[in-house]
Amino acid sequence: MPLPRLALTAGEPAGVGPELLVRLATTPLAATLVAITDRHLLQRAAARCGLAVELADDDGSAPPMRRPGTLRVQHIPLAVDEVPGRPDPRNARHVLDTLAEAADGCMAGRYDAVVTAPLQKASINDAGVRFSGHTEFFAERAHADVVMMLASPELRVALATTHLPLAAVPAAITPAALTRTLRIVHAELQRKFGIAAPRIAVLGLNPHAGEGGHLGHEEIDTVIPVLDALRGEGMHLLGPLPADTAFVPAQRARYDAVLAMYHDQALPVLKSEAFDRTVNLTLGLPFIRTSVDHGTALDLAGSGRADPASLIAAANMALELVARCATHPSSPRRGEERGEGPPPPETNR
């Protein structure tokens, strides 16, 4: 039986991503690993890590086994050679091209999933390209409504808003947006995690979930009406819950996932408990995308000491989701969609 094909993006060339990719290649992961990046970047990363990694051009095949220490490459050249720890905006286009190839390849059936290493948003913006993150890039590329989720073996946290300044969060939580987000989370918990009747805990925006309007009206005006309407559709929704007590053990037993209102409302809890076992995934895409839960670690780049645990966890979760989605009646298998439907969208450049 052919192995799943995982597309791997190296993220910021001057960060730890390339080193994480070559370390992943040395594991016995049961997948065909295709690194979408510069071949010479990977060679230099392997040398810094003291690893012997065999690189080969990707021919599109999916053999039944892979030897640890082998890595296929879809070569996309850097504009300039990397200097570890010092991102260069001239390589921003390279980074975006790797993401575009990964997304388009998944939508065309060349890859079963994409696993992304961390990138440096500031470097891309410094190149004159407005960029707020992987999640938003893939959403635009696929013309999809998406939700960011971080998941560990113990906890799943989805976000109603992602990379927004805190002052912009209340206005972004509209009835339409919250309804759309909860529907995506509910459907993806069923499809990707195999939970037939998901229980979702929804956090309030304000302290104590607004305390009856004394600490804010967003719960009364927006959150509660949305939850009531979706309960009428059959969803099992808890809340709005105060964020400061939602994660105690007695509460966790009541739900399968949490929807937090903003990035730092719940992610510190998750990362403090399981930093090296937490995976970032994008719900709502027409393909599977997982990622590490950390940044580019520029201070470690080039040292060969970066810990690949989060990337390994992301790759393992991608394989689990590939296997689960293959058994779901609404999930196309790789290759079924090849040649069908509209071509992938053009890159926004």
Rank of each mutant, 00 (worst) to 15 (best):
P2E: 00
R5D: 00
A7K: 10
T9F: 01
E12T: 07
A14N: 06
G17T: 01
E19I: 12
E19L: 09
L21S: 05
T26L: 08
A30I: 00
R44W: 12
R44P: 07
G50L: 13
R67Y: 04
Q74H: 14
H75K: 07
P87W: 09
D88M: 09
N91Q: 01
D97G: 13
E101F: 04
A103N: 09
D104N: 12
Y111L: 01
Y111S: 01
K121C: 12
F138K: 13
F138Q: 12
H143I: 12
M149L: 15
L150P: 11
A160Y: 10
A168Q: 15
A172I: 11
A176P: 02
T181Q: 01
I184N: 09
R191D: 15
K192W: 13
G204V: 03
G210Q: 01
G212F: 10
H217K: 10
E219A: 14
I224W: 01
I224P: 08
R231L: 03
L241Q: 11
P242R: 13
D244A: 07
D244M: 08
A246T: 08
R254N: 15
A257T: 04
V258W: 04
K271G: 12
S272I: 00
T282V: 09
T282R: 02
G284A: 04
L285W: 08
F287K: 02
F287I: 00
S291R: 05
V292Q: 06
H294M: 02
G304F: 00
A306W: 06
A306D: 05
P308S: 07
S310A: 15
I312M: 10
L319H: 01
R324E: 00
C325V: 03
T327C: 04
P329W: 10
S330T: 15
G335S: 05
G335I: 01
R338E: 13
E340H: 13
P345S: 09
